[in-house]
Computed example of a mutant assay.
Amino acid sequence: MVNVGPMRPLLARHRRPLAVLCAVAAVLLVRLPQTSPPGGDVLVAARDLPGGTPLTSGDVRIIRLRPPPSGALSGLPESAVLAAPVRRGEPLTDLRLLGPALLDAHAPGLVAAPVRIPDSVLGALVRPGDRVDVLAVPEAALPASGPPPAPLVTAAPVLAVPPPDGSSGALLLLAVTRPEAAALAGAPHLTLSLHPPVPS
C-alpha cells in the first residue's frame, strides 16, 4: 500500500494558487470560441482633401478595418468626386461622394438641385451640412417701403459645394422637393442666407 500522507500537506499548500489558475483557464476557454467581427478592405484618404476633389489612386490608400464602416468603399469608383472635405486617414463612404447616395441621409422624396448664386464670397462661407434659405432677387431694386422677397426654399440642406469651374458666382447642391427645384430653376437671380440649425 502506497503512503500518500506527505502529499496532502503539499496539495493543501498549493490549493489556492491552483484554484486561481483554473479560474483563469476557464475564462480563457470561454473567450476563445468568440470570433471577432469580420474585417474588410476600406479606402481612406491618403492626405487632407478639400471638397470637390476628383479622386485618383494617389489620393487614397487601402487599410483593413474590423468591422468596416457602413457604406465604406473598398475600391475607387470611376470619376469619383468628393462632396465634402475629408481628413487624412478618414474612411471614404458612399455619402462622401457626389452622387445619388448624398440624399440617403435625408427625407424621402427630395432631389439634388444645383443652385448658382452671383456672390462667390457668400458661397465660400457655405459648407456641406449647412442649411440655407434661398431667395429670388428682383432685377430692379425694391422701394424702401416694399416687402422683402419671400424665400423660395427654407432650411434646405447643403449636400455639396463643388469647386469653382471658371463661371461667375458660386454653385451649391441642395436637397429640396421637386416643386422647390422647379421654382429655383425658374428664378433668374438668387441669393441665400444661412439658416439657424434645425433642433434635433
Rank of each mutant, 00 (worst) to 15 (best):
G52M: 02
G5L: 13
V2P: 13
L173F: 00
G52L: 02
R64P: 06
R88W: 08
L18S: 12
V81E: 09
D104Y: 07
D133E: 11
P37L: 08
P147T: 01
G5W: 07
R8G: 05
V30C: 12
R64G: 01
V30M: 12
V60L: 09
P188H: 03
P143Q: 02
P54T: 13
L18N: 08
C22H: 10
L125A: 14
A150G: 10
D130T: 05
V198Q: 13
A136L: 07
V161D: 02
A140Q: 15
A80P: 06
T191C: 06
V176Y: 03
P143L: 02
G99S: 04
A155H: 04
G129R: 10
S200M: 12
P54G: 12
T177R: 11
V30L: 15
P151C: 09
T56N: 05
D59S: 08
V20F: 13
P9F: 00
A160M: 05
L28D: 11
L152G: 07
S57H: 11
I117Q: 00
L102P: 07
S168F: 09
V121I: 14
A112S: 14
S167T: 15
R16Y: 11
R87E: 15
P196I: 09
S70H: 12
T191N: 10
L142R: 15
V81Q: 00
P33D: 01
H195E: 02
T56P: 09
H106M: 10
L174Q: 00
G99Y: 07
G39L: 05
L76K: 11
E139R: 14
S36H: 13
P128K: 08
V86A: 00
L21C: 14
P147C: 02
R88I: 13
R47H: 13
L98F: 04
P197F: 02
L10V: 15
D130I: 02
P67I: 09
L29M: 13
S57P: 08
D48W: 01
L49T: 07
A19P: 07
V27Q: 07
P163E: 12
P199A: 11
L171F: 01
M7Y: 13
V27H: 03
G39Q: 04
L103M: 10
G166V: 05
A23I: 09
R8C: 06
L142F: 11
A150P: 10
P85R: 03
H189S: 13
L82A: 07
P100E: 13
P67M: 10
P17A: 08
V158Y: 01
V126T: 10
D48C: 03
A25T: 14
N3V: 12
P151R: 09
E139H: 13
R96C: 03
D48V: 07
L171H: 04
P179W: 01
L174P: 00
P91N: 01
T35F: 06
P118D: 12
L11G: 03
V111E: 08
R127V: 02
S200Y: 12
L49S: 03
P77T: 06
P33F: 04
G169H: 04
V86Q: 03
P143G: 01
A136H: 10
A185S: 15
G5E: 15
T177I: 08
L102A: 02
